[in-house]
């Protein structure tokens, strides 16, 4: 279960999406996420689906990888669906005891679930096709103008990149600690919520200790490789827009136009 979270996991492949400038992918993802909330109709979903499927096919990443991220929000999806089905007022479909299911409820629930699924899958496409460092490069350069407001853009980007790099490492570590504690008779599965929460303490304490130790080691390793912040730093592959990126921006604009058109027409 612990390995199901795909966020920040790069899938190496050679595809158009992999080679796109991270700034394009970032603004694309942002635009896609916003667009999901711009329409209410089936036609809108059709456009969003076509776009998403095309992008997934272009990415050369196995679909199973995209869907893996969904397992983590499975409970949230169920929760959203159930709440929407039962709590939306409207035309009655079935009714028993105090519970009423409405047509509007089903519709809203389906839309909400789809939206969440598209949101996760859409952002997974970005994280799976972009290396974390590429992603943070994109953020650093794309948001570089914030430096004029004394926001330490480079430092934030560096922190994000390290955090992303260490997600799998720490997940593995958590897995190890859980197994080690279970081997010594720790019980994480039985008891009520409070008991289970208490059982997490022997996992979290060693995890934090080791995370701080790792952070210290990494800081020393970075300093001994001459790291001294963003000033005077160069890049192995400086970000530069190419024809491909402008083409991608055009596609995005067309997509946005289509979504807005659909939103107005239907």
């Amino acid at each position: 279960m612990i390995r199901d979270i795909t966020l920040g996991q790069y899938y190496p492949a050679e595809s158009v999406l992999h080679r796109l400038d991270p700034r394009v992918k970032l603004s694309g993802t942002l635009l896609y996420v916003i667009s999901l909330f711009l329409f209410q109709s089936f036609a809108g979903y059709a456009v969003a689906t076509v776009f998403l499927v095309t992008v997934i096919v272009l990415s050369h990443v196995p679909v199973s990888f995209m869907l893996r991220g969904l397992k983590a929000i499975f409970i949230l999806l169920i929760f959203t669906a159930v709440l929407n089905i039962f709590l939306t007022p409207g035309r009655e479909l079935v009714s028993f005891w105090k519970i009423t299911i409405t047509i509007e409820g089903l519709r809203v629930a389906a839309f909400m679930v789809l939206r969440l699924v598209y949101l996760i899958v859409g952002s997974s496409v970005m994280t799976l096709t972009t290396t974390p460092s590429n992603l943070t490069d994109g953020l650093e350069k794309g948001l570089g103008w914030l430096k004029f407001f004394r926001i330490p853009v480079h430092e934030i980007a560096m922190m994000m990149s390290i955090a992303l790099t260490f997600i799998p490492v720490l997940l593995e570590e958590t897995d190890k600690i859980i197994k080690a504690q279970q081997a010594r008779g720790a019980d994480f599965e039985s008891g009520n919520i409070i008991r289970r929460a208490k059982a997490l303490v022997p996992i979290l304490v060693p995890l934090f200790v080791s995370a701080f130790r790792r952070a210290n080691d990494l800081a020393i390793a970075m300093e001994s490789r001459c790291y001294r912040g963003g000033e005077g730093r160069t890049k192995m592959r400086p970000l530069r827009y190419t024809g491909r990126d402008y083409a991608a921006y055009s596609v995005l604009i067309v997509y946005l136009a289509a979504i807005i058109a659909v939103g107005i027409l239907f």
Binding site: Y10, P12, T131, P132, S133, I162, L164, T165, V169, R214, D217, L218, I220, A221, M222, S224, R225
Partner: peptide, 14 residues
């Protein structure tokens, strides 16, 4: 400098 734990000195993801 090269340190003991290879994991704790990797900065890049590639």
């Amino acid at each position: 400098m090269v340190f003991q734990n290879p994991e704790n000195q990797m900065i890049g993801t590639i």
